[in-house]
Write a protein that binds this DNA or RNA. Structure first.
Length: 458
RNA sequence: GUGGGUAUAGCUCAGUUGGUUAGAGCACUGGUUUGUGGUACCAGGGGCCGUGGGUUCAAAUCCCAUUAUCCACCCCA
């Protein structure tokens, strides 16, 4: 017995899920467009070289590679093949890979199209991405991201713009109890330095710190020790945690500032964060919707300035949005000095959250407005004419394709939640009229074909 | 990658200390009702009991292996 199946970490989306997902995407798209972002799409797969080395060591492992076509083994590295060295073998048999996110392909796009684009360039992109992660709650191997990026400006107004997008979109979606967490990689680096963590160990350190919300302070301390940091560094975390637990974001920033006051880059971060918070407040975006979190680190390698993450209280899944500033992502593709900042909404996790809290609006499901019954096998001209007429008036109309028993056609309309049914039997045909049945209350009216639209649309 | 659970109809699941014809609900088809859905009643179709081996007179049931899947850990938007 071979039942069909789909790969783990992937899902089919039926009409109901699609109605919800399309609503989520179009809501976000609307906000993007009101902020002047322009749409872009890129291929689902890229040259492997475009993607590798951008997501950190762990991230690179999760990139789905595409096997070369043809007799790929003939060109494989023979030595690697014999010694079963996958790491060495892979680049010789795979030259393409599925995109891991939308930001890196966008950076590649910007470099390739630099002459046609007007900067600062704002683009949005809504497409699926793929990660070879172990699937779990809220984690899929294929999922859809809605990205908005502004590239070609270092202004802190860009960060404000994106924070506004977060707030407007999440409010419009009705996501309950969300918080936009913000931090700055420069602050993180300065704090680490003040504890004696050099730039070379910074990634290691941030990865450990990032786990704080999962494992708590003791967990992070333990993690740091496992990673070979000395005791002073580990105990420094306890102090950082204490600073971070102040209730007011500005207080946290002040305390941080006193720790890193001698670090000019770090202080620049602090001042940018202060500006961002006060401008957001002026725009009505305040705690608990936005919060500075000194422990927020995020995994991706390419962030250099502000970083964002959106979490939902009591959520069944992890963060639903992420983002940050990357100062030189285009530099890797040969064009330096293009600072960008972007955010990403996770459609799938937003769907999970709204489903979990039962917050989807009612009546998202699309259905046909009118079903025309097929009653007279010999002649259905009148029916087809009515169908065309109602469609041209803007209604969604279908005719039952087979002249089967009315009971069956009626059940079909009921199962599909079609609100109106038109019957044209011998009696109606003779009278030059049609019967319109309202499926919700069962009432029926004898009408001229020209009157149907008015009844249905009222 | 580690530990634990699960695998029986399209779906959700029962199935006794191993015992002869493997059940229910939902869904589906037909009927009660030849021009009327949702309710009710009646009838019907549908199963290699995940796969392979073993124990036994006898296995859905016990044992071993294997695969898939779920949960936790690990890791990670």
């Amino acid at each position: 017995m071979s039942k069909p199946s789909i790969p783990k970490g992937t899902r089919d989306f039926g009409p109901r899920a699609m109605a919800r997902r399309q609503w989520v995407c179009s809501t976000i798209r609307g906000v993007f467009e009101r902020h002047g972002f322009l749409p872009v799409e890129t291929p689902s797969f890229e040259n492997l070289k475009t993607l590798t080395g951008k997501y950190g060591e762990e991230g690179d492992k999760l990139i789905f590679r595409i096997l070369n076509n043809g007799d790929y083994l003939s060109k494989a590295n023979a030595e690697a093949l014999i010694s079963k060295d996958s790491k060495l073998l892979t680049p010789t048999i795979s030259k393409k890979a599925l995109r891991y996110d939308l930001t890196v392909p966008f950076a590649r796009f910007v470099v390739m199209n630099r002459n046609e684009l007007t900067f600062p360039f704002r683009r949005y992109q809504i497409q699926p991405v793929w990660r070879g992660d172990r699937p779990g709650k809220g984690r899929y191997q294929e999922f859809t991201q809605c990205d908005a990026d502004i590239i070609g400006s270092t202004s802190a107004l860009c960060e404000l713009d994106l924070v506004q997008v977060f707030s407007e979109a999440l409010d419009a979606l009705g996501v309950p109890g969300y918080t936009v967490l913000i931090n700055d990689r420069r602050i993180l680096a300065a704090v680490a330095l003040s504890m004696g963590v050099g730039a070379d160990r910074l990634t290691d350190w941030t990865v450990a710190v990032d786990k704080y919300d999962k494992v708590g302070v003791e967990g992070v301390v333990k993690e740091l020790e496992v990673r070979g940091f000395d005791h002073d560094v580990a105990s420094g975390i306890e102090k950082l945690f204490e600073i971070n637990s102040a209730s007011n974001s500005l207080d946290v920033l002040s305390n941080i500032a006193s720790v890193i006051s001698s670090n000019s880059e770090g202080m620049k971060g602090v001042s940018d964060m202060r500006t961002l918070l006060s401008r957001a407040t002026a725009d009505g975006i305040d705690a608990p919707k936005i919060k500075f979190d000194a422990m927020l680190a995020r995994g991706l390698d390419y962030y250099t300035g502000a970083i964002f993450e959106v979490r939902v209280a009591d959520s069944p899944v992890g963060s639903i949005c992420g983002g940050g500033r990357y100062d030189d992502l285009t530099g890797i593709f040969g064009w330096s000095g293009m600072s960008g900042v972007g955010i990403s909404f996770g459609v799938d996790r937003i769907e999970d959250v709204l489903t979990h809290f039962n917050k989807f609006p009612d009546a998202l499901d699309l259905t046909t407005d009118v079903l025309v019954m097929y009653m007279n096998e010999k002649n259905c001209d009148v029916e087809l004419q009515l169908v065309s007429q109602l469609r041209s008036q803007g209604l969604a109309v279908e005719m039952y394709p087979d002249p089967v028993k009315l009971k069956k056609q009626m059940k079909y309309a009921g199962d599909r939640d079609i609100p109106f049914v038109v019957m044209i039997g011998d009696a109606e045909r003779t009278a030059g009229k049609v019967t319109l049945k309202n499926m919700s209350d069962g009432s029926q009216e004898l009408l001229l074909t020209t009157e149907v639209f008015k009844y249905v649309s009222s």
